[in-house]
């Protein structure tokens, strides 16, 4: 059985009118099947309002499906008694770094999760040290979060989750409010967790460049998963992506344009190096 397994997931936001009756129902997630294996790096793409954040909140049992089932590490998230296990298994990092840091000193914030879990004091310190080191923020352990840059704050937030020893981390647009330097820092930290510590990662984003390292990409639109595949497969469908209000990395777009102009290039070129390589090959064959 898969690590995360969702079947026909549905989530409805209900809007109530003044009499308490249901005025309108908005299906944010609409019949999604989700299969994630241990150690996967999954990216979920979608425009604002496509339902990707709502889906993410299910994995951490912050939301419970209105219909369908979701199992995380074999536990049904809809069952009240599983909630705390599920939250420990799947940690969550949110978009706004300021609004998820509770502690006024970096190390205290990282210790917050383990404290809630009832971890003994000495072990909390060990966990804080190892998780701050894993995101490269150990030397800032005594600093006030207010004095950190956006990227650093977000790495502290990630450390806060790592300290709970989750098997999986869900990141809900962690880079949306950061500048390019901060974005790189965060993505590097996330990739390291995935590769070194074998933590399963679900990255929700709309920056296409962050997706190219994923094992699998899901594209959401209108609450449904509309595309699914490796980054290469996904980005070879430039026109289709544009239809879903998305983009492709600039290099992929350039390759696509060149192909349209008659160059026999492969689909789904993701990095500048790949494109340079392919073009050089082409030239020597000409």
């Amino acid at each position: 059985m898969g690590f995360i397994k969702g079947r026909k997931l549905v989530y409805e936001y209900k809007k109530y009118n003044e009499e308490g009756g249901i005025e309108s129902v908005n299906r944010a997630v609409d019949g999604v099947d989700l299969d994630v294996e241990r150690g996967d790096f999954i990216a979920i793409l979608g425009h604002n309002g496509s339902g990707k954040s709502t889906l993410a909140k299910h994995i951490n049992a912050l939301l419970v499906p209105s219909g369908g089932t979701l199992y995380v590490n074999g536990k049904d998230t809809a069952k009240e008694e599983n909630i705390w296990d599920v939250r420990q298994t799947a940690g969550m990092v949110f978009q706004n770094p300021d609004n998820q840091i509770i502690g006024t000193v970096v190390e205290e914030d990282v210790g917050f999760g383990p404290e809630n879990m009832g971890v003994p004091t000495e072990e909390i310190w060990e966990r804080v040290e190892e998780s701050l080191k894993s995101v490269g923020m150990w030397k800032y352990r005594k600093a006030s979060p207010n004095r950190l840059s956006g990227g650093q704050k977000q790495r502290v937030a990630i450390a806060g989750v790592v300290a709970m020893h989750p098997k999986c981390i869900v990141l809900d647009e962690p880079t949306a409010m950061l500048d390019p330097v901060g974005r790189k820092e965060v993505i590097r930290a996330v990739r390291a967790l995935n590769m070194v510590e074998d933590v399963t990662v679900l990255l929700i984003t709309h920056y296409m460049e962050e997706v190219i390292y994923a094992d699998k990409v899901l594209v959401m639109d209108g609450g449904k998963v509309v595309m699914q595949g490796t980054p290469c497969e996904i980005f070879s469908q430039v026109e289709k992506l544009k239809g879903y209000r998305l983009d492709v990395p600039q290099v992929t777009l350039l390759a696509h344009e060149l192909k349209k102009s008659g160059l026999p290039l492969e689909d789904g070129i993701l990095t500048a190096e790949e494109l340079v390589e392919a073009l050089c090959q082409l030239r020597s064959n000409m």
């Binding site: 500048d179 390019p180 330097v181 990395p249 600039q250 290099v251 350039l254 500048a272 190096e273 494109l275 340079v276 073009l279 050089c280 030239r283």
Partner: peptide, 20 residues
């Protein structure tokens, strides 16, 4: 200084370096 150029610039420079 932590900024970099658009990716297209890297592609073109990369090509030029390879004698394109």
């Amino acid at each position: 200084i932590g900024l970099g150029a658009p990716q297209t610039v890297y592609v073109l420079r990369g090509l030029a370096e390879k004698g394109f």
